[in-house]
């Protein structure tokens, strides 16, 4: 048995070196026999296509804004992973965007953890938004960056924090990748608020909030761009009425 296999490899090599034409024919023969690309892709679990991802995410959590749902793969927030929300300055409606999600997470008796927020989170506003404040935890306004990252990672890994909010302006891709993996492990959604976009970020979803018109901002309406989402091909933008009045 052993000797046979050795012989056969020898002959293959000798053929290829001696006669290139024969070699091409050989390949052609093989192609005609071999399965199509579709089949190959389907056979390998590690190969996937972006356009299929949208279907897999169909059971995502709705954002509460129908226009926004429409431009997200899976029609809503992803179940887990990192979401980056980029706004040029605070106060552009970035928290308002998450209110329906926060409400439903609190209703599922899960917790919301805020790590190093830039200002004081105002309790009456949370109550107004229908969020049970006893399920909101805030971790230190002045904890060091290293500790803050440790907290974020641990929180993402724990299964009972439904949502981890954090305000970190600049995180290297390596760190983001680590957090993304932690979020997948704990099946938790982590949201990072930041001012500047970080290209090639491994986050699952990157959103940008902009004024609806560049020179004349309108209070109620913002533009939301999905810069990157698993299962999306090109950036999609929609106008969103984030405040009802």
């Amino acid at each position: 048995m052993k000797t046979y296999s050795e012989n056969s490899t020898k002959t293959l090599f000798s053929k290829a070196h001696k006669d290139p034409c024969n070699h091409i024919e050989d390949i052609q023969e093989r192609i005609s026999d071999s399965p199509s690309i579709e089949q190959l892709i389907n056979r390998n679990a590690n190969v996937w296509r972006g356009c299929d991802m949208a279907d897999q995410l169909a059971h995502a959590q709705s954002t509460g804004y129908p226009e926004f749902d429409n431009i997200l793969p899976g029609k809503g927030w992803p179940q887990n992973g990192l979401v980056e929300i980029i706004s040029s300055n605070w106060g552009m409606g970035e928290l308002q965007l998450l209110i329906p999600l926060m409400r439903s997470i609190v209703q599922q008796s899960q917790w919301i953890l805020g790590v190093s927020p830039p200002h004081l989170l105002y309790a009456p506003a949370l109550i107004q938004a229908g969020i049970n404040i006893s399920q909101v935890l805030i971790v230190g306004l002045d904890t060091s960056c290293k500790d803050a990252l440790w907290v974020i990672e641990k929180a993402l890994q724990t299964q009972n924090c439904g949502l981890v909010l954090t305000w970190q302006n600049w995180l290297p891709n390596k760190v983001l990748r680590r957090l993304q993996l932690a979020a997948e492990a704990g099946n938790t959604l982590g949201v990072i608020f930041k001012h500047a976009d970080n290209k090639n970020s491994p986050s699952r979803l990157r959103l940008q909030i902009r004024n609806s018109s560049p020179h004349n901002a309108v209070f109620n309406i913002v533009d939301i761009t999905v810069i990157k989402a698993r299962g999306n091909f090109q950036p999609l933008t929609t106008k969103l009425k984030i405040y009802q009045n």
């Binding site: 008796s109 899960q110 917790w111 989170l121 309790a123 009456p124 949370l126 109550i127 404040i133 006893s134 909101v136 935890l137 805030i138 971790v139 230190g140 904890t143 500790d147 440790w150 907290v151 641990k154 929180a155 724990t158 299964q159 009972n160 924090c161």
Partner: peptide
């Protein structure tokens, strides 16, 4: 689920307290 969640959360907060100290883990109140 709730029981599990509570016990997990308590463990998580213990961990945070061990690392950061109790004064950094806050709850918002009106």
């Amino acid at each position: 689920l709730e029981q599990h969640t509570d016990s997990n959360l308590n463990q998580f907060i213990d961990l945070l307290k061990a690392r950061l100290g109790a004064q950094f883990i806050n709850s918002v109140q009106t």
